[in-house]
Design a protein around this nucleic acid. Sequence first.
DNA 1: TCTGGCACTTC
DNA 2: GGAAGTGCCAG
Length: 536
Amino acid sequence: MANGGDQFGLAERPDSDCMDSPKETKQENPSYTLTSPASSPQTESSQQVPACTADQNQGMEGIKVFLHDRELWTKFDEVGTEMIITKAGRRMFPSYKVKVAGLNPKTKYILLMDIVPSDDHRYKFADNKWSITGKAEPAMPGRLYVHPDSPATGSHWSRQLVSFQKLKLTNNHLDPFGHIILNSMHKYQPRLHIVKADENNGFGSKNTAFCTHVFSETAFIAVTSYQNHKITQLKIENNPFAKGFRGSDDNELHRMAKLQGKDYPVVPRSTVRQRACSTGSPFSGEGRGLRGSPEAVRSPYSCENRLSSASPQELLRAPPAHYALPHPHQQHGQQPQVYHCTKRKVENCSSGNRQLPYKKPFTGSSPSEGESYYHPSSYPPPPPGLSNNPLTDPPYSSDMGQRQACMFASSEPRLDELNCTSWSYTSPLPSAMTPMEPYPPYTPHPPYSSSPQGSRLSAIATQSSSPLGEHIAHNPYQSQSSGPPSQGSQNIHSRQLSPPLREYPRYTPNLSPPLYHTLETHTHIRCGVPEWSAAS
DNA sequence: TCTGGCACTTC
DNA sequence: GGAAGTGCCAG
């Protein structure tokens, strides 16, 4: 939300830290690497880089992530992206898809997302513009959405577009499906985390390497109904499922007439609104200025890799900071080619026909997107225990193996759980099963501390969550997010974490199984507000 | 603000 | 044909 960012007071994004960011094409912009909060991105990069040793962050330093359909994201961002949240869970549109490069082909990685608060404000839409209306509600328990293909080799992730389109947003604090819980009228920043799952990496140990990527143009305000008609228009124009609302043709007019009980022709409401407002959205002008900058669009950033001296746990504990993008513009990812992770194929391959009771096999991905690119062979066998685990089995196991997104939700989810070895324990739990911990008082903090140690998984989890290590299931990431992403799309950083392994609560048959493995991360906010967290 | 039902669409 | 994803709309 370029505009939103401006209006909302998001700090500008720092330049990317990435050391070697090759220039990219318009379409794909690398994400910003989040660096330690304290230092400016640029500064950090220099600092961090040295910190990364081949040992610890092997392979993480050269990772580049490009946002797919960046142009579309930018269009929304310029107006002020809004994402609908419902009790049942609503997908994001545009969907979050990325192209990942620079991974070690043979190393296994876990890709996950979390969505952290961009700031600690509550917004309102009045007079055709967004404005701050008060302090944010306490952050919801942070949840991590683990890509269903995880863990998979670098070669797997690199050969196709990585899609997080199955991720759903909800405003139901007691959501049992593992969807990411958000507060309406609050601004959020999606983040992508790449965690090295290679055995040698000591996942779960303090040596676990990971990096976080943030694309500022994917920031959005969660709403229960669209506020800005321009956003509605963009959604209708671009989302295939909303074709029925495209009012240009006669059918639409007839439909509207029917609905309204009026004689045809009737101008669709949405159309009317759009036209009325089309001229002056508060966001458009500003947003463009910020994000539209050529710089932002082009500079690719590699993710930062860091090693933190601090223990993983410490890192994880970082308070959930708000994720503030340092530079609204920088991040644009390129528009990558179309690669997709298809769940269906996975499912088919892995177990045949099993499907989650509550959920269908992945059908969401269009064939073109995911399936055509899917390569079953590349997938590693389901994590041990996953398929065998009674808890996970019936509904989950095969499916899990099949690549459904994993939502880890437990009282204390952690990154470590992501670990392949521990996978069996964590993945299956429905978030519902896990008792939700009270939300920590919301304190805006930068995800990343300024100190060298500051950069941590926690940063990842941040805002909404606590550090990765702490809870993946829980909210490790509670939003600390923060770190300031450097620029538009930022890479965040890579570092090592040492999340403690934990067992997850058992799966209760009654509860609907989580479609995704989500990790809830509850993080205590301990960190101070980073400089870059200025969002507001 | 939020919810549930509706018609429509994709898969 | 049905499940699921859309925005619209009344309440």
